[in-house]
Nucleic acid binder design. Structure first.
Lengths: 228, 228
DNA sequence: TTTTCATCATACACCGTGTTCGATAAAAAA
DNA sequence: TTTTTTATCGAACACGGTGTATGATGAAAA
């Protein structure tokens, strides 16, 4: 564990530039924001900007990375608590909506309609890679799946992202719990159909409201921890 | 009917610029293409370009509009033939995949990963507005739909577009018929769930493979013709 | 043939980008 | 505290793309 306590000015400057970028995205959309705008808004010298980031994209990416690692830390903590005590079952989708809602100002700038497609493509790739493995594993049972795994995974990720962006752009008219429910209503039957109705019935033969999420909860256990 | 036969040079120049743009999108992606690139590739004077289009976006839009009106004409023709003789049932999704496949070079440039998000947003809005009415109509039956109409429609359009772009970006590994089948497998159960399983059973109580499409076929009848 | 007008080349002002460099001052180290 | 380090500043710069204006040219239409 390395504690890197560097110059206070660095954090201050970066914070100013991040805040400026977010405000500007909300105002005029990511594409329309120029580095010059950020400089003026943050009241930072031109050379200072390029001392920290190569360009606009890298600044936005770094904002997103902060959020992502924050989310992963939280999931890590929840998972750890679940190991010891008996916490409620982990619901990754619900947690995602909660996390998005908690930082909705930032996410609205980063992933809303106003933002560029860059982050969304990045997110799509991220989630796709997270899910393609487990999905393939689940496919093992059926010899001739009705729909190829890649298509199903791509479809599922697109659905989730489209729901999240819709939620943000509509100023979150429903609580995260309702969004999680909507996602389940829309996706569970699709998953069952795509996997040839061979969804692993680990404890129940029917598919009660927790079944899909139970799968994703198990996936998080495997996919999240060995990495660290 | 006005036959506007204007200067032959106009069509020639426009065609050159369109071809140049398409080729360049395939090569380096829409965002990276500059007006200067188009000028060089098409071997057209700078002022000539601006005499036809305001900017890069307008050129791309006009390409897309050509394709869209071509598609609508074809649907119009099919519908007319269906009125008189007994043609097979109209399947708008299948037709869409066929049309996309027939002009896959153009669509790959326009709607593939290489392209900007502009056209996709445009398409999304177009399809959403096409579907939101009929969906609302279908909702009439259920007092408390499990999922709001706007969300369902948004979700369905996102699914279709994500399938189409996946198909294009993957170099169309399946024929349109298979893609239509995949779309049906993925979407039919979702629609049934979203509409509270009150899908209009007009002639059958079960929902055979044609049921969703039967609905969209009826929708096309109403939505496409009164406009002209 | 005459007229029309699409095209062309050139020139231009404007703006955003990304880099360089020496001076300044704030923070960290001594 | 003094000294050292270094993040920041501001100005200048070259580069490239944008969109406009203009007069000449020549191809198409009348």
């Amino acid at each position: 564990m390395k504690e890197k306590k560097s110059d206070r000015r660095i954090g201050r400057t970066r914070r100013l530039m991040h805040e400026a970028l977010m405000a500007l995205i909300v105002e005029k959309g990511y594409e329309a924001v120029t580095v010059q705008d950020i400089l003026d808004r943050a009241d930072v010298g031109r050379s200072t900007f390029y001392a920290h980031y190569r360009d606009k994209d890298e600044l936005l990416l770094s904002s997103f990375e902060q959020l992502r690692s924050l989310f992963e830390e939280q999931q890590q903590a929840i998972f750890a608590a679940r190991r010891t005590g008996r916490e409620p079952e982990l619901n990754i989708v619900l947690e995602l909506f909660r996390h998005t809602g908690e930082h909705h100002r930032l996410y609205k700038a980063i992933a809303g309609k106003q933002s560029g497609e860059m982050i969304l493509k990045y997110l799509h790739r991220y989630l796709y890679n997270l899910l393609i493995g487990p999905h393939t594993e689940m496919m093992k049972g059926s010899v001739a799946p009705p729909v190829p795994v890649e298509v199903t995974t791509h479809h599922l990720v697109s659905s989730l992202l489209s729901l999240i962006t819709w939620w943000l752009d509509s100023n979150m008219p429903f609580p995260p719990e309702r969004m999680d429910e909507i996602f389940r209503i829309l996706s569970t039957p699709t998953l069952e159909a795509a996997f040839g109705r061979k969804m692993e019935g680990k404890n129940t033969s029917e598919y009660p409201e927790g079944s899909v999420m139970a799968f994703y909860s198990r996936f998080i256990d495997r996919g999240c921890c060995p990495g660290k």
